[in-house]
Simulated scan of single mutants.
Amino acid sequence: MKFHQTPLADLMLVETTLIQDERGQFARAFCETEFAALRPDLHWTQINISRTYRQGSVRGMHFQYPPAAEAKLIRCLRGKIFDVAVDLRAGSPTFLQWHGVELSEDSPMQFLIPEGFAHGFQALTDDVQLLYMHTTAWSREHEGGLRHDDPSLAIAWPLPVTQVSEKDRHAPLLDETFVGVHL
């Protein structure tokens, strides 16, 4: 595995090695030994799979407040997505900046999103499936969200947004009262 730093501090792309032959492909999603150099205490608590039916749909932007703040490792299993992380860490030099990457079933890349970041994605194809690994279990009382179309973030979604959940549509817009996530 190779780790690639993005423009946002601690937000990483993880490149896996695809082994391919006439039978198909094989790749490791996680190796504790290889991740130890980057995050020696990394431990996955919850693993989720999502399926998004329609191209243009957006899920997010989701995060959790401490003490349930979570890191995520995202891998696209089917289709193609535009995956986005927003730095919400109070005091970070990249506070409220976002970074997006394309992930696909054919790509060896995964997105490692640290604690204190919001996460969301747009389906670039129909029938997208993602694997999410989380360091902390989901907690309703610590859940946070931002609007995918918040003008102060100005996320450049590659396609017109066609579907958003009711919950995500009613997430708050950022204002002067948002001071960030204190880890």
Rank of each mutant, 00 (worst) to 15 (best):
F3I: 12
H4Q: 15
P7M: 10
P7E: 07
L8E: 09
A9G: 11
L11Y: 07
L11Q: 05
E15A: 00
T16N: 12
I19W: 13
D21K: 00
D21T: 00
E22Y: 11
E22A: 12
R23N: 03
G24I: 04
G24Y: 05
R28I: 07
R28Y: 08
A29H: 15
A29T: 14
F30I: 07
F30T: 07
E32S: 13
E32R: 14
E34A: 05
F35G: 06
A36R: 13
A37D: 09
R39K: 11
P40R: 05
W44F: 13
W44T: 02
W44Q: 02
W44C: 03
W44G: 00
T45V: 13
T45G: 09
Q46R: 11
Q46N: 12
I47Y: 14
N48F: 10
Y53H: 14
R54E: 15
Q55V: 08
G60W: 11
H62R: 12
F63C: 04
F63Q: 03
Q64Y: 04
Y65G: 14
P67R: 05
A68W: 10
A69S: 13
A69H: 07
L73V: 05
L73Y: 01
L77V: 04
G79R: 08
K80T: 11
D83V: 08
D83E: 08
V84N: 06
A85E: 02
V86I: 10
V86D: 02
V86C: 03
L88R: 04
L88E: 01
A90E: 12
G91V: 03
P93R: 00
P93G: 02
P93C: 02
T94N: 10
T94L: 00
T94R: 06
T94Q: 04
F95W: 05
W98F: 07
W98Y: 12
H99G: 01
H99L: 05
V101P: 08
V101I: 07
V101E: 08
L103W: 02
D106V: 07
S107G: 03
F111C: 04
I113W: 08
P114C: 08
E115D: 09
E115R: 10
E115K: 11
E115S: 11
H119P: 03
L124S: 09
D126E: 11
D127G: 01
D127V: 04
V128Q: 06
L130A: 06
L131P: 00
T135P: 15
T135H: 12
T135R: 10
T136G: 14
T136F: 13
W138A: 05
R140A: 15
H142A: 07
G144E: 02
G145F: 05
G145V: 01
L146M: 03
L146R: 03
R147E: 11
R147G: 09
R147P: 13
D149Q: 08
D149I: 15
D150W: 05
P151L: 01
P151Q: 03
I155S: 10
I155H: 05
A156G: 11
A156S: 13
L159V: 01
L159N: 02
L159W: 04
Q163L: 06
V164R: 12
S165F: 00
S165E: 05
E166L: 14
E166D: 15
R169W: 06
L173Q: 06
L173M: 06
E176S: 10
T177I: 01
T177R: 13
V179N: 15
V181H: 04
V181G: 06
V181I: 09
